[in-house]
Design a protein around this nucleic acid. Sequence first.
DNA 1: GCGCAGCATTGATCTGCATCAATGCCGCCG
DNA 2: CGGCGGCATTGATGCAGATCAATGCTGCGC
Lengths: 250, 250
Amino acid sequence: MSIAEPLQDSCAGATRSDCRHGRATNGCEDCKVRLFSVCAALEPSELEELDRISQAKQVPARTTLFEQSALAGSVFNVTDGVVRLYKSLPDGRRQIVGFALPGDFLGLALQDRYGVTAEAVNDVAVCRFVRSAFLAYVDGKPHLLRRLHEFAGHELSLAQDQMLLLGRRSAEEKIAAFLLHMQTRYARIGSVSVTVPLPMSRQDIADYLGLTIETVSRTLTRLAREKVVLIVPDGVRLLDLERLKLSGAS
Amino acid sequence: MSIAEPLQDSCAGATRSDCRHGRATNGCEDCKVRLFSVCAALEPSELEELDRISQAKQVPARTTLFEQSALAGSVFNVTDGVVRLYKSLPDGRRQIVGFALPGDFLGLALQDRYGVTAEAVNDVAVCRFVRSAFLAYVDGKPHLLRRLHEFAGHELSLAQDQMLLLGRRSAEEKIAAFLLHMQTRYARIGSVSVTVPLPMSRQDIADYLGLTIETVSRTLTRLAREKVVLIVPDGVRLLDLERLKLSGAS
DNA sequence: GCGCAGCATTGATCTGCATCAATGCCGCCG
DNA sequence: CGGCGGCATTGATGCAGATCAATGCTGCGC
């Protein structure tokens, strides 16, 4: 399922201009997630410099970007699609610790080894940086480091919310909180809607919420029966936000 | 249970030398947790400067240091004792997201508002900084910011481990992992031993592991019956590390 | 259009942990 | 020293969600 050498680069060593097949736009400046991402902290001149060490990549669905405890060779900015981040136990039990949406940064902690495995849920576009180059770039840009730190703080806060959810909430509360959370996150990156895309499988949702696939399915079916949501292909329409917030509010 | 105005300072405005009743030692340089804490990144001259904005405080057991979503006025370095960090739901369900030991920094994320509530488990000593002063101090010390970021990355990684534990592990695995984790953490700060201090209550452990107090008690009793651990006052002696690791390994 | 593979749904049953309910233990204060 | 309050332990019972087992749906290759 995962490729042996993740993200083997077909044009490693090529200069950026030789290798922009992945990026629809004209570099960082036109990047559609720039304003939501860590890059928003950068001046135009710095952005140009970043451009030179960045590399746009298309990542097909189900591809592994990197694996838990592997040496962290790259860091990424997700520009399109959804990435699942997870930890596994030796016996195969899996906990998804987060879904990365466009604008999210992977490798925020800047640590030597990846703490989680990252896999593309659907077709994904990323902006890739060689970690050492990125570190050199960050060095001497305290405002960027500050921004990275802010993002890390936000991540930590989300992780703590998720702990509360995993440890103390019922199946229905978990599902409701999940749907509201995804709606909020999609709203932040510009798609405000009561229809929440759910490109990930039921198994992914189960592994994110600490449930089984059957419980996720049953709970969604029940919410649909009670007209709280409407299940649509690859997503859910939220019909009764009040009722959802009653279960899902933190 | 918690005081109305947390940590009202009896000597606010006093200079450091007037107000060292809390610190047994002679300032940062002699601080016994310095080498484990964020402060290890600092030069002697910087340490002196830090000294000037720091304030040692004794915090009695069960005192609230700060409350979730309150404006973050201070940040803290724990120098002695144990602090519980938690989130609560409106109906009173509680999830402890971590225990802070000596050397741990509270307010790492440097955010405007506290994301969790912090309470002293036993008598605690902290080194307190007014947040704005600390931010000013950090500004222009990228190596310290880097160190804070490293700590935050480590925190995030621990949080993700805890998500795996909360979402996917059985009661016995949770307890085993918890005991091994506490042993490791105490070892890092200089007390290597198979006897793990547990100053927190069973309820705290339950709220940390997403269990009930009864399940914690029963599981510990069973492990004791099976000679895996020996329950001692305010702690546990680990008798069969192999067996524990079998359950608790990540 | 057919058949197959991979996911999702639905139903029946089981079980780990929660809940409910005593009882025990210990330190503290009068 | 005795009684009380707070915590921990232990036992009996219940139930939310897991597990086991079909069955359904959909898209894709032929």
